[in-house]
Write a protein that binds this DNA or RNA. Structure first.
Lengths: 362, 362
DNA sequence: CTGAAAGCGCTTACAG
DNA sequence: CTGAAAGCGCTTACAG
């Protein structure tokens, strides 16, 4: 080939810094040859050899090869689509850097031994954290000697420390977006069917919604906020009483997979969507196949995973990343659908039957 | 400590064969000391050193340290609770052997490069396969040089080769169990609300059901088989027409998460469960928190993952495992709940209103 | 710019 | 049974 062993090492190195030491043309020639021969460096060998380099230069390795996703969930809670969507996104991103993603479930105290073990064995270069993450989780991570490795929290968390790196949905923007979209369609009385309000994101979503309601001069009426429970249970009568009493012309459901139930209740009550009442949903963007093309605000759990992996790589190579770049908020996106429409002048419920309303379900 | 380096290596080796070379007492003493000092062998180093041993003895390494779960799903299909439940089970089992589980999503043809790379890098000791697995998947696996590693298919697959190792639910037993349970309660006309019947497991479930219907001398009436679609959509009238026409006194819903919709339709039609009609569901055992304590047949996806990991370990250490031990069927379990009851002599629909029927929903 | 050489932290065959 | 020693396949500092 006429190239040195070192040049090959430079070319195939996952470190772009080393790649650049070769001319792009030479590098490509080497990569082609390597590809042709199907050569892949032995993982354990390169990892071991790099240990020396790391200790010689007295800095931690800057490469992100093996990432473990720690899912801290209750022992009973096995099924969690959100978690898998984030894993999918993280794996997608990591695979472009030839890195792998391991899954580590932590339910009980002693499960942290697994994490400690991985760290001490030098088997992991960074952590992604998902689930009920709080200060205690982080201190667990530090204890095992795993704290010298970079970590990023995915999604909601309850850490009080200000410098904890995370990627989450911009929940405030979700609430704002909802109010804005419906306001633009002329709605003034928007019903807000909220969840249990135990979580931060629920509070933030509502705060963003209230802000926008004020900003757009919509009706500020506390009665417009209702618990989603009655609707989820399919209790038609109380739901309809509330709807009539509040005179809401649009409904916003900030929790995933709630809008379908709401539409079901409205259908049973023969309330036409969107002619009489508009419905705006929230969905995970990757669950697109499931929904019924409702108008919705999409929050991409996959994107959280992707961005988490990217952030982790940056933290691995540059510990002094500015704080605002360590705290990433993923923007939600409004996706149009059949279930919202322009406010009609007289679409208080029961005042009229819309003449050319669309069929509400497929 | 007064023990040799070799003794320590033997004691901490993940290979039980080596562990046994020491007296249990000595081994425990060493393990305690190791634990106290928090020593964990460097992963890459031990892996590399073992390469020599493997090539010297001319056999593949028998240890299962790193397992990758290949999820072959459509690019759009990100959310899949079943997959995560299996991963959880596999990770649980693997963690007891100090092994890790990586997640590799394969959606497009070129994603197989990732698998190939992992195999060539010697980074993986075995594969778990999930998703739309067929003969082509297996040949993909073999091509990358990854075929020398053991693999186990989790759940449903379409491989025609007879010796493919897998762990799956015993679907036949699901159908049998349903018919048996309802027959014992005195039911003779059981409605079967089936899915799209595209998959093998759907065919097998129905076959098992038909077998048991014959065995228990229940009514064999083709009209008792109905597509679940009308019920899932909440179309009350056609569903009720079918129910009245068939005179079914019990309904079995073999697909996950279908029974709740069926109960909803019955509630709307004011048909009391179980006084007038019994409902028997199918659920993932780990999704227990979700269901409403319906009578159900539980299929444990987590168990599939666990057994898959165990089988993989056996394959890794013993390639000549008898075929019947490579093909594992996990037994479903009947879980009692409020939604099935003993057949009343006169509980044809509408003949009477049960006097002391239970409240049907929480 | 290149090549030979040391060494990463283990495992294990081998000599004592 | 024990200890010293070779070597796994890489990376990279170093001498040429």
């Amino acid at each position: 080939m006429g190239v040195s062993r070192k040049a090959v090492a430079f070319a195939i190195s996952p470190d772009p810094h080393l790649n650049r030491k070769l001319s792009p043309k030479t590098r490509q020639r080497i990569l082609d040859a390597v590809e042709r021969m199907g050569y892949v460096p032995h993982h354990a060998a390169s990892r071991l050899a790099r240990v020396r380099a790391a200790s010689a230069t007295r800095r931690a390795p800057t490469m992100l090869e093996h990432v473990a996703m720690i899912c801290q969930v209750l022992p009973t809670q096995a099924v969690d689509p959100t978690c898998l969507a984030m894993m999918g996104g993280a794996e997608l991103e990591l695979s472009t850097m030839n890195a792998t993603l391991s899954f580590v479930r932590v339910s009980r105290e002693e499960d942290w031994q697994k994490v400690k073990r991985l760290a001490r064995a030098g088997a992991v270069d960074g952590w992604l954290l998902y689930g009920t993450i709080d200060d205690q989780t982080i201190s667990h991570l530090k204890q095992g000697g795993a704290g010298t490795l970079p970590h990023v929290i995915l999604g909601n968390h309850r850490c009080s420390r200000t410098r904890v790196p995370f990627v989450d949905i911009d929940s405030r923007a979700v609430g704002r977006l909802a109010a804005e979209h419906l306001a633009r369609l002329g709605h003034r009385r928007i019903g807000y069917l909220h969840g249990n309000m135990q979580y931060d994101y629920q509070q933030r979503t509502m705060a963003g919604f209230r802000e926008a309601v004020k900003e757009f001069g919509l009706d500020e009426d506390e009665r417009l906020f209702d618990d989603q429970r009655q609707w989820l249970r399919g209790n038609v009568d109380p739901s309809m009483q509330w709807l009539r009493a509040t005179n809401a012309t649009a409904l916003f459901t900030p929790e995933f997979d709630c809008a379908a139930a709401v539409c079901g209740v409205l259908r049973q009550a023969r309330v036409e969507v969107p002619a009489e009442v508009s419905v705006l949903a929230c969905e995970d963007a990757s669950g697109a196949a499931r929904n019924q093309n409702l108008a919705r605000i999409e929050e991409s759990m996959e994107e959280i995973g992707r961005r988490g992996a990217t952030l982790l790589r940056e933290l691995a190579s540059n510990r002094a990343l500015p704080r605002d770049q360590q705290q990433i908020k993923v923007e939600p996106a409004l996706v149009k659908g059949w279930s919202t429409g322009v406010l009609r002048t007289a679409n208080r419920m029961g005042d009229e039957r819309a003449t050319n309303s669309k069929e509400v379900h497929s």
